[in-house]
């Protein structure tokens, strides 16, 4: 396995870890200052962490946790299996795609919530902020895509056809190499001039 692919495998693990961590961090928060008090709604991808509005905003978690953890599992499994089965590398692409799709939808959902809260037309301004969970999810998706590409086999490799087991040696590049099935190793010392005389 080349250095590039080892780096790719390491980054696949990093992306998987970031994706799992992102699912447990705050996805978004809505906050309003009202008569000197701060009312806040905050949710991770799994549950509502804090809701001072007692459900009045009709908001809930953006459920990217299952998708992110699923993608992380696919990526981690692929990175482990690829050390023995090169074909398993495709799993890192699948996981990266999954994670990118989940991250894109999650960002769209946060933007939707910003619009939704703005459309409430409340007399006091609501402050909607994207949480570090979504930011980390986007970073994880970016790292996952880069690592998945590094993890793959690049097409530049020229495949040597394996015929009937004969090893084909490269003879054009370096004059110091011997041709295949060239001169046999001479075990018994033989006079050089005798060979030349042939």
């Amino acid at each position: 396995m080349t250095t590039r692919r080892v780096l790719g495998a390491v980054l696949v693990f990093v992306a998987a870890g970031l994706a799992v961590a992102a699912s447990f961090l705050a996805a978004y928060a809505v906050q309003v200052e009202l008569q000197g008090r701060t009312l806040r709604f905050e949710a991770t991808s799994w549950l509502v962490e804090r809701d001072d509005f007692r459900g009045a905003l009709l908001l809930g978690p953006i459920e990217y946790g299952e998708g992110a953890v699923g993608a992380a599992l696919v990526m981690a499994l692929s990175a482990v299996l690829a050390f023995r089965m090169p074909a398993a590398r495709v799993g890192s692409l699948l996981g990266a795609g999954l994670l990118a799709g989940v991250a894109w939808s999650a960002v769209t959902s946060v933007q939707g919530i910003v619009k939704k809260v703005a459309d409430l037309g409340a007399p006091v301004p609501f402050d909607v902020e994207q949480g570090e969970g979504i930011t980390l999810l986007v970073v994880a998706a970016g790292v996952a895509v880069v690592s998945a590409v590094l993890h793959q086999e690049l097409p530049k490799r020229v495949v040597e056809p394996e015929g009937d087991g004969a090893v084909i040696h490269q003879v054009e590049a370096d004059d110091s190499e011997t041709p295949p099935y060239g001169f046999p190793v001479i075990v018994e010392p033989v006079e050089p001039k005798e060979q030349k005389s042939d």
Partner: peptide, 24 residues
């Protein structure tokens, strides 16, 4: 060599979006 990774990435992304949509 170009199409196979793109196909898997796009199919994975679509699956991720659909999964999140259904969960929502």
């Amino acid at each position: 060599s170009f199409a196979a990774p793109v196909a898997m990435g796009a199919a994975g992304a679509l699956a991720g979006m659909v999964l999140l949509y259904v969960l929502q």
